[in-house]
Design a protein around this nucleic acid. Structure first.
Length: 295
DNA sequence: TAGTCGTGGAT
DNA sequence: TATCCAAGACT
C-alpha cells in the first residue's frame, strides 16, 4: 500500500461545496494576496474577531507592504498602529518575525511549516494557516472553529475535549482526497465553524453536514465534561496593562509617572503592571523617569 | 498543563 | 447587567 494516499470523506466534500457558495468575501482571501499579507491577517486574527481586524489589516499592509518595511519601523509606531486589537505583544512578535524574515529568509515569508513555527508568535495553527492559505499547500489547519466542528461532526460532543493531540489526525482524515479540494477544505471547515457550527447557538438547519453529524444523530446532547473556565477581565492585570498602554498610545511625548497613576487606583497592581509592560518591551522608561512607547 | 495575555460586540 | 466568546502563543 502506498504511503499516504488520502482517503477522503463524504463530509469533507460537502463542506467544500458549501464553502463555494457561503464563504465570506474577506480581503485576505482575494487572489494575489501574498503570504506576508496572509501572515499579518492570521496574527491579527488570533483571538480577535474578523470585523475588528479588517480595517487595521488594510492600513497595516499599506504602510508596511513587506516584512522588511515592518522590521525597519520604530517599535512604538508598530504598537500604536496595532491600535486596540488587543494582546499587543502580538505586534512585537510580528515585528520580530518580520525582522527574522528580512534578515534570514531574503524578505520572503518561509513556506515550510517547521521554519514558520520557529518564528516569534507563529505557533501550530498560524504556521499551517500560512502554508495553506498563503502558499496553497495541503495542510491540516486546526483552530477553535475546527476543533468545535470535529467535536460535533466526528465525536458527537457538544464541545471539544481539552486534549487536542489527535486534532490534526482527525481533520486530516476528514479532508477530501483531491489536492485542490483538500486545500480549500482547510479554510472551509474554519468557515463552517465561524458561520454555522458556532459555539453558542449552532445553525444546524443550514448545515451542509447535518445528515452525517454524529452530534445531531445522537440528539445533540449537552456538554457533559467539566465547564470551561471563563476568563475574567474586570480588575485583572490585563485590564490595568490595557489602561496604562492606552495612556501611552494617546501621548505624543513621554509621560510623567503621575499621568500613569491616574489610570489605575491601586498602586501595587499599577506598579506590577507597569513593570510587566517594561519587561515585555511594550514600554520604555526615559532618562528623566518618564514613560513612553519604545522608539 | 494551566494560567496569562486585551478588547468589545453579542446574547 | 453579566457572561460568553473571538482564525492562539507562550511559559
Amino acid at each position: 500500500m502506498s504511503a499516504a494516499a488520502p482517503e477522503g470523506s463524504p463530509a469533507g466534500d460537502l463542506v467544500v461545496d458549501w464553502y463555494a457558495s457561503a464563504a465570506r468575501d474577506l480581503p485576505w482571501r482575494q487572489p494575489g494576496v501574498d503570504a506576508w499579507a496572509v501572515l499579518v491577517s492570521e496574527v491579527m486574527l488570533q483571538q480577535t474577531p474578523v470585523a475588528r481586524v479588517e480595517p487595521l489589516w488594510r492600513q497595516w499592509l499599506e504602510r508596511w507592504p513587506t516584512p522588511a518595511d515592518l522590521a525597519a519601523a520604530p517599535t512604538g509606531e508598530v504598537i500604536r498602529a496595532w491600535g486596540k486589537l488587543g494582546y499587543p505583544r502580538r505586534a512585537l512578535r510580528l515585528q520580530a518575525a518580520a525582522g527574522a524574515i528580512a534578515a534570514d529568509h531574503g524578505n520572503v515569508v518561509p513556506s515550510d511549516v517547521e521554519t514558520l513555527e520557529s518564528l516569534p508568535g507563529i505557533g501550530t495553527y498560524t504556521a499551517r494557516a500560512v502554508a495553506c492559505f498563503g502558499y496553497g499547500q495541503r495542510q491540516p489547519v486546526v483552530d477553535t472553529n475546527v476543533r468545535r466542528v470535529v467535536a460535533r461532526l466526528v465525536h458527537g460532543r457538544a464541545e471539544p475535549l481539552p486534549a487536542r493531540a489527535a486534532d490534526l489526525a482527525d481533520i486530516t482524515a476528514l479532508a477530501p482526497a483531491d489536492h485542490d479540494r483538500a486545500v480549500r477544505f482547510s479554510v472551509a471547515v474554519m468557515e463552517l465553524g465561524a458561520l454555522v457550527c458556532v459555539a453558542r447557538t449552532p445553525r444546524c438547519g443550514s448545515c451542509p453536514v447535518r445528515t452525517v453529524c454524529a452530534w445531531r444523530l445522537a440528539g445533540s446532547p449537552a456538554h457533559d465534561g467539566p465547564p470551561r473556565k471563563v476568563q475574567r477581565f474586570a480588575g485583572t492585570d490585563r485590564q490595568v496593562r490595557g489602561r496604562l498602554l492606552d495612556v501611552l498610545r494617546a501621548a505624543t511625548d513621554p509621560v510623567p509617572q503621575v499621568e500613569l497613576d491616574a489610570a489605575w487606583a491601586d498602586p501595587v497592581q499599577r506598579t506590577r503592571c507597569l513593570d510587566s509592560l517594561l519587561a515585555d518591551g511594550l514600554v520604555v522608561q526615559t532618562d528623566d523617569d518618564r514613560f513612553a512607547l519604545p522608539g
